[in-house]
Amino acid sequence: MRRGIYLIEEVDFRPMNSRKPLEYLTWLTRYKKEDEALDAPELTRGLSIRSREIDLVGAFYAVGITGHPQFKAVTLWDCHGGWDGGWRQMMNIYDGVNDRLFLSDIDDLRFSAFSRPLGAVAGSPALADITAEGYAAPFYLFESARVRPGAALEYLDAVRRERAPVLADHGHRPIGLYEVLFCDSEVVTVWGMSLEDHLSLQRARDAALGLDDEVEPDPRLLDWSRRSRDFLDGPWRETLLAPFPGSRLSPAQAPPGG
């Protein structure tokens, strides 16, 4: 079985205008819905490659109170067929750099966008399997971490063996464990959970710190924090994401107004 290749993108909207992320996510989810009827990739209206092999699995509105510049959207893409499938199709649009690639319906809507190509590691679920199952969570946890150069696979293996079982006990399901490609010092993980599971996890950690005496502590959460420092070499951050209606990982399948 070939390696799963994915793409995650963070999009910022400035100056602060709460309508911009709504307009962007509504446009994007509707645009990609049209691709489900396509039999072969094609370049259309200079917007992007149109293909069922490049699948918008998740479109999310980042929960601002969890710590990032507001406003932000996050998208998660599945390159079906890996390097020789969706990834090849994305690369093909740069062959000759057709002028139409620079004409877009969403020009000036985004302030900036940061894409990271992701490679699934051993034990990471396949997004296609998760969506085929029909799984969708009310919230997702998006972790981005900088690790020691060359330690990405070690860190993710420790996450799979040591952290994932602890999070599972608190209702968190792994969606993807990824090495950020074309660099040797960054990883991304994504987890699905309910709001109640998110809250219970935070309180269990507080209790382990001696800051909440009304719930059962889970010292394993603190054990992982110490263990992770064997691999980390810089910023580590988790952000909560709310799935936008119309993407495959959203419990609601229709975008607002759709």
Rank of each mutant, 00 (worst) to 15 (best):
L76D: 07
L76E: 05
D78G: 04
C79W: 06
G82Y: 10
D84N: 14
G86H: 06
G86R: 09
G86Q: 09
W87P: 00
W87T: 04
Q89W: 01
I93S: 13
Y94F: 15
Y94R: 14
Y94P: 02
D95L: 15
G96W: 00
V97W: 08
V97A: 09
N98P: 08
D99A: 13
D99L: 12
D99T: 10
R100W: 11
R100Y: 11
L103P: 00
S104K: 15
S104C: 11
D105V: 07
D105I: 06
I106N: 13
I106Q: 10
D107W: 13
D107E: 13
D108V: 14
L109K: 12
R110T: 14
R110N: 11
F111W: 12
S112M: 06
F114Q: 05
F114N: 09
R116I: 01
P117K: 06
L118H: 02
L118T: 01
G119E: 10
G119A: 14
A120S: 13
A120G: 10
A120D: 04
V121I: 14
V121K: 06
A122C: 06
G123D: 11
S124H: 08
S124D: 05
P125M: 14
P125H: 12
L127R: 04
A128R: 15
A128P: 02
D129F: 04
D129N: 10
I130C: 08
I130A: 13
I130K: 13
T131G: 02
A132I: 01
E133D: 15
Y135M: 07
A136S: 08
A137K: 04
Y140S: 01
L141E: 07
F142S: 11
E143Q: 07
E143I: 05
A145P: 00
A145E: 05
R146H: 06
V147L: 00
V147M: 00
R148K: 13
P149T: 02
P149D: 03
G150F: 00
A152I: 01
A152T: 01
A152R: 03
A152F: 02
L153Y: 00
L153M: 03
E154F: 01
Y155Q: 01
Y155M: 02
Y155G: 00
L156D: 10
L156G: 10
L156E: 10
L156V: 10
D157K: 06
D157N: 05
A158T: 03
V159R: 04
V159C: 11
R160K: 11
